[in-house]
């Protein structure tokens, strides 16, 4: 993306003759400068992690969290303009709440990603708005347990038609990434922000598509990947922020929560150790940024 707008970049929603929307591409630039965010889809849950760049020593460690919860079982993290991220989360919460009032059940991650994709896309259509300066990773666990609809008081029929299909698979982990254009895909592992290339390279090594990575092991990997991705912006201090969602019988009981501090510290310790080891072996491979 080297060509300049030549006038076609001054207004949102306007195509250039070669079919590009420059405002959206500029929004992507904002994302590419944001702190790295990753999401990992594990066998029994989802992990979200972000490299929170410390912009001032006067900020209280642990405060101003970047990973937000939507409903109870979904986490959202975004790279790019922080206020845009907040608005995005606010919309996600409204969508989740409206879904609940219609369907009396939590919104599936897939449906939420769809609604948010449409929302973000709408901001590419009008001259009166600008696109979102974020790429968001949305991850959660749709419950696979037998659950009642909201407000259900009875037990349902013991025999006869109960609307249940034997052996039907339902629930499980969901991980989606939504870009400023409104484009979204489901991922095994997602990365965005400044260190995304390094992070993607590391994620690809994990063989996530086999669906074998355990949640606890994923936490260790996530921490390490954020540290690897931070290599390029070593001059800046950062804080590792991490959250996870497990199945109902897992450590978070189906809820999206911060990774407990003991586990987080352990993961950070190991990540730092791995980084030291890497420095001794090679000179760290992913130095140059590649063009997407």
């Amino acid at each position: 993306m080297t060509s300049i707008g030549t006038g076609y970049d001054l207004q949102n929603s306007v195509f250039s003759p070669d079919g590009r929307n420059f405002q959206v591409e500029y929004a992507v630039k904002a994302v590419e400068n944001g702190g790295t965010c990753i999401g990992i889809r594990c066998k029994n849950g989802i992990i979200l992690a972000t490299e929170k760049i410390i912009t001032s020593k006067l900020l209280r460690p642990g405060a101003n969290r970047r990973i937000a919860t939507v409903d109870r079982n979904i986490g959202v993290v975004s790279a790019g303009l922080v206020p845009d991220g907040r608005h995005f989360v606010s919309r996600a919460r409204d969508e989740a709440s409206s879904w609940r009032s219609t369907y009396k059940a939590p919104i599936p991650v897939k449906a939420l990603a769809g609604r948010l994709g449409s929302y973000v896309q709408a901001y590419t259509l009008y001259s009166s708005v600008r696109p979102f300066g974020i790429t968001a990773i949305v991850g959660g666990w749709d419950t696979d347990a037998e659950t009642k609809v909201d407000g259900q008081v009875g037990i349902g029929p013991a025999v006869g038609s109960g609307g249940k299909v034997d052996g039907a698979k339902k629930g499980g982990p969901g991980l989606y990434m939504i870009e400023p254009s409104g484009l979204y895909w489901g991922y095994y592992g997602a990365a965005t922000g400044k260190g995304r290339q390094a992070a993607k390279a590391e994620l690809e090594k994990l063989d996530l598509s086999s669906g074998t990575l355990e949640l606890e092991a994923g936490v260790m990997e996530a921490a390490r990947i954020i540290y690897v991705a931070h290599e390029d912006s070593k001059d800046k201090d950062f804080e590792l922020e991490m959250s996870w969602v497990s199945s109902v019988d897992g450590p978070t009981k189906g809820r999206h929560e911060q990774v407990p501090s003991s586990l987080l510290e352990e993961a950070e310790r190991r990540a730092k150790k791995a980084m030291e080891g890497e420095d001794e072996e090679t000179g760290s491979g992913e130095g140059e940024k590649m063009e997407e």
């Binding site: 109870r72 709440s97 259900q152």
Partner: peptide
């Protein structure tokens, strides 16, 4: 049932 749902949404919002 209405109140149950109301309390459910209260709990979700409180957690935010």
């Amino acid at each position: 049932q209405y109140l149950d749902r109301l309390l459910n949404s209260l709990d979700v919002n409180e957690n935010y």
